[in-house]
């Protein structure tokens, strides 16, 4: 862990070498979700609600998923850009060093400009939560933290899966955006507005529903029956990450037998 922060520190120094570019990027990163959020706002202004969900409620959904995504993009960017790492043969370098591959890939990139996106998402979260009347309990606060942190696990898992593909082919990786960007886009609304099969896929296969829709029902007191299940739903994110790590190890083994 200490080593990871060393990696981060050296990357921070690197990025500070290009200050103008850094600020431009931060600003741009801040604007991206803002444009999407503005779109959301205008749609609610026209339609009022979406299947019984009000604007601030959907905004919480939106903010949780965007915060989780922003954090993941900050620190797991190394996996996101892994195809270039393999393409340039830099992964060989990782293999001749006496440390785990995951830690080294995580440490290879850290984009501070993404903090702009994080800041913006947190602002939306704050705004949305304050315009709702929620009776806060310690359990609800824990749930909110679980939602975001487990969201990070899910996105990291997907990034790792996508990176693992690079060991076989660097073509057609675009399709992975269905899971990352697509998942983010989709889970910014409560899942029950979609067709059943979509909602099921994003609850049981890639558990985006478990980190915002289900626990959000608990926070908003919309649950029927046992609330604990709803509250603990985000832990599905941890369960999701485990097989991803396994697949990564298979990928590394494949790379070491083909060298491609």
């Amino acid at each position: 862990m200490r080593l990871y922060w060393k990696y981060v520190w050296i990357l921070f120094k690197s990025q500070m070498q290009y200050r103008a570019s850094f600020w431009l990027l931060t600003l741009g990163q801040c604007l991206t979700p803002l444009a999407v959020f503005a779109g959301l706002y205008f749609l609610f202004e026209r339609f009022g609600q979406i299947r019984g969900w009000s604007f601030p409620e959907v905004a919480v959904c939106f903010a949780v998923i965007h915060t989780a995504f922003a954090i993941t993009e900050c620190f797991a960017r190394g996996f996101d850009l892994f195809s270039t790492m393999v393409g340039q043969g830099e992964f060989d370098r990782v293999l001749v060093r006496p440390r785990g591959t995951i830690l080294q890939v995580l440490g290879s990139k850290f984009e501070f400009a993404r903090a702009g996106r994080l800041l913006q998402s947190l602002l939306v979260l704050f705004f949305a939560l304050s315009s709702l009347t929620i009776e806060w309990t310690p359990l609800k606060t824990v749930t909110l933290i679980l939602m975001i942190s487990c969201g990070v696990f899910i996105f990291t898992g997907i990034f790792i899966l996508a990176a693992t593909f690079c060991f076989w082919t660097i073509q057609g990786l675009e399709v992975v955006h269905i899971l990352t960007d697509g998942g983010k886009e989709m889970a910014q609304y409560p899942l029950n507005i979609y067709q059943k099969w979509v909602a099921r896929f994003f609850t049981f296969v890639i558990p985006f529903g478990c980190i915002n829709y289900l626990p959000l029902m608990y926070i908003l007191d919309k649950t029927e029956g046992n609330g604990i299940l709803y509250m603990l739903a985000p832990t599905a994110g941890i369960i999701f990450l485990l097989p991803c790590l396994l697949v990564w190890n298979i990928g590394v083994r494949h790379y070491r037998s083909t060298g491609s």
Binding site: R2, K6, S14, G89, R93
Partner: peptide, 23 residues
């Protein structure tokens, strides 16, 4: 590897050395 660098491109050499020490 003569054609690739193991040093971090934008920081002073000594910083790279220290990170390698930790690795």
């Amino acid at each position: 590897f003569g054609q690739r660098s193991q040093l971090w491109w934008d920081v002073p050499v000594i910083d790279s050395f220290e990170l390698l020490r930790d690795i």
